[in-house]
Design a binder for these strands. Structure first.
Lengths: 142, 142
DNA sequence: ATTGTCGTAACTATTTCTGTTACATCACCT
DNA sequence: AGGTGATGTAACAGAAATAGTTACGACAAT
């Protein structure tokens, strides 16, 4: 199975914000507007932007004229940052049920796999850290 | 969400086979025996070994005294081979529904993300290719 | 006070995964 | 020739995650 599309929706939202916020006098956009570009429901956007806010990538304002804005320049936000914000689970799952502890393989293999998977996951994240939201925006509008 | 545990179950099965097959006169083991070590149902094992057979990593025999054996020495089977055999889907999913084609971001972002995700996925697989089933067995019994 | 947005709970439908039962198929063995 | 024990696979169930939707309270600016 794949990693969920949350990384995609989150990156799309940030990229759209990087494009549109500078054009607005207050620099603010709403979840409705983002949802229109992503083609989904505003609640889905608010949920995911909520994770990005916990990670410090965006801030939200409530009340009249409320909305969202970036906290950092898009050049400083990498896809690794986005991934970490919305995908807390390990990349590759271990056993669904604990393996047989009476078997040497069943007893010994989980930590070995955990370490190998951890290296693979770090390698993937390192590659994601080479791409910023500004990069994505530049290539997208090109 | 995480990649499914199929990679784990497949690697466990191959590691167990690498340990046990050499001790058997015919070099063959059954899905029941593997399932006992993994702690799951034999049908689950047969399904996953079926994928490994399509990838050429194992062979099965039917009839009396039937079972499974490796086709290659465990030193030559990497976790990348296992991953490719059981996880055909792209690592990171794109949009659940096509984004808004009237928006420049919605129109342009999918191929940009596809390429970035592809690099990340290749990087992860490269790291998996550095570990063989023989490595896993050695560290597991250590 | 009105307005417009966020924050969030609750619910649904869909999909995937894992486990299970059941049984046909097959090849070996007596 | 028939019994045996394994694979191959369909079918189904339960659990979990995802994505979408409705609803509504909280909040701050006007």
């Amino acid at each position: 199975m794949s990693v969920s599309s949350r990384v995609t929706v989150a990156t799309h939202a940030l990229t759209w914000m990087a494009l549109v916020c500078p054009r607005r006098p207050d620099g603010i956009v709403t979840s409705d507007q983002i949802a229109d570009s992503v083609n989904t429901n505003p609640v889905v956007i608010r949920r995911i932007l909520g994770s990005l806010r916990e990670a410090g990538l965006v801030v939200s304002q409530r009340g009249q004229g409320a909305g969202w804005k970036l906290t950092r320049p898009p050049e400083s936000i990498t896809l690794r940052d986005v991934y970490l914000a919305v995908e807390p689970e390990p990349l590759i799952a271990l056993h669904p049920a604990p393996p047989n502890q009476l078997c040497p393989v069943g007893r010994g293999i989980p930590p070995v796999l955990r370490e190998a998977y951890g290296r693979a996951e770090e390698s993937m994240k390192a590659e994601l850290s080479a791409v910023t939201v500004a990069d994505v925006l530049r290539r997208t509008v090109a």
